[in-house]
Design a protein around this nucleic acid. Sequence first.
DNA 1: CTGAAAGCGCTTACAG
DNA 2: CTGAAAGCGCTTACAG
Lengths: 348, 348
Amino acid sequence: MGEKPTLQSLASSLGVSRQTISNVLNNPQVVHASTRDRVLAEIRASGYRPSAAARSLRSRRSEVIGLRIRPAVDGINGSLMDAFLHALVECSQRRDHRLLLITATSDEQETSEQAALHTTGAIDGCVLTDTHLDDTRPAELAATGVPFVAFGRPWQDRDAGHSWVDIDGAAGTRLATEHLLDLGHRRIAFLGWPTGSGVGDDRRSGWQRAMADAGVAAEDLATGLLDQRTDDGVVEGTQAMERALRAGATAAVCASDSLAVGASTVLRRVSSAETARTAVVGFDDTPVAAALGLSSVRQPVAAAASRVVDLLIERLTTANDPPEPVHDLLTPELVLREFDRRLDQHAR
Amino acid sequence: MGEKPTLQSLASSLGVSRQTISNVLNNPQVVHASTRDRVLAEIRASGYRPSAAARSLRSRRSEVIGLRIRPAVDGINGSLMDAFLHALVECSQRRDHRLLLITATSDEQETSEQAALHTTGAIDGCVLTDTHLDDTRPAELAATGVPFVAFGRPWQDRDAGHSWVDIDGAAGTRLATEHLLDLGHRRIAFLGWPTGSGVGDDRRSGWQRAMADAGVAAEDLATGLLDQRTDDGVVEGTQAMERALRAGATAAVCASDSLAVGASTVLRRVSSAETARTAVVGFDDTPVAAALGLSSVRQPVAAAASRVVDLLIERLTTANDPPEPVHDLLTPELVLREFDRRLDQHAR
DNA sequence: CTGAAAGCGCTTACAG
DNA sequence: CTGAAAGCGCTTACAG
């Protein structure tokens, strides 16, 4: 294979300065077209690739983005983050950036690890996911000067000083609720999580407002009747659906596909004519929902990832004059599946 | 925050040479204990972190490992790779290495991307996953000099010149089959994929051998009777199980949890006394299997990831004298769940 | 055990 | 448009 080519060796064999080659790679428009073509041809022929370390040492940029990944507690909901991760890698790669992964057992460990990597120059910035109430990470990263963009709102302060991208969960559950209302349902339950999680409360609020708009009495929306609150999980979904049925529900909007899977087993068991009109809509449109034929609210994960990467890279390339923080709320879509189509035939 | 400390600034304020500080970090045993402690205290106080770029430029090592991630086609089976990814990041981090992700739309793109990153020095080596028959990646990586360890056997040549770690799928299906035999089943079907996938054929062979050892007639093991071959998926599992039932099967060992989920719905529907003795065992012990109470074969993913990282780092730190290739086959375990326990009570 | 020298391979000013 | 100089912050020999 011979010696690995460097700027130096290329420059010698081409009879130009290292500088010119560097310009061809980083500032092509500044080099005469004929010189550029000659250099590019030689680069291709020699298989030359600039050293990432040398480039990074001089330019003070690694073109690497940090991301914490979490153990997937639940294979059903984990697939959302999985899709986001994929999209993030793809978008980064397209923009000549790479993604570096870290793990952490706490938010503090996450931010201190990101700060450490940023100090060594291993990463230029990072992406934050799974934002929650009382999330201290934005402040910690800001304090240590680590540029970042969040996937997820800052739940306590929407006008935070950093850029974030999120999915409008309330818009999603509103879509789901309105769909069930269109089918003729009135007593539509919401199977969600206990209050206190930003994401969960947001999803509940979409159902609440859609129901209120449709003129459903407030007392029916009260906790314990149609508003079921439980931990996430398939079994929990089954139990909550059973309670909702006793409260007279004929359909349910769920905060997750896990809950929806659980709820749907109840409906398949209770197959009387009376309950056949019941319908369930999940959230996240996971492969499991697809496999079981459940309707679900689909988050535009790829679009979110693309936006996150764009915002972060813009932030990184304008270090001296940081852009105004951007707050982006993307709208999900409702994916209807056989289960509902079947119901549709009965209901209409 | 002041200026970012460097080796130089630390050396000046401590009155030692840069070299000594470098030694404290990279070669502690060579520095006098009192000097070492004084330097370490100052490092901690100043928040000094060595520049990754400078270190990498000089040492020609980035301490970064490349990995291709794939879009999770199926949320059920995807969780295995998810768990492997997490374990890989954790093990790498523990050993002061980081994981860099790439995506690719083909094996060729994967290896050329890895080679490119290796040439720039962005990665020291990479991990290969999802090995398959006629996998050209090992040869391509070897040709371009990229050190790597595979998670997955080279199916065409077990004695390949590279190190690999894999899970003994045949041992797993043997465990599952023997468990069902112990419960009194004789006509145990195998729900697997069409021949030609290394992983699938391996899993089938464990069932085949266990059945043969138990004296089950070869004609019953033939395709179309107990040996069901189908694409992966929940619906496919249901259909295959229905065919197996018609062939007189009373139980099934499955090549995946997707197939097992599908198979189990058949068993829950066909709840006659005759079929109540039927049982299903899945593969991969995914969260879905856990949620639905399905028994499954669990792969020791964390152990595999740890072994992969160890082997790769050993390979990277002995570049001039590469170690002998290691081939490691780890044994999975059988996770029994309620569904089978219930059966147990009936069968005994 | 400690230090002075060299240099890893680039990019960033700046001069022509 | 092109080139000569400086230097990013380390580690790796090697001399004391």
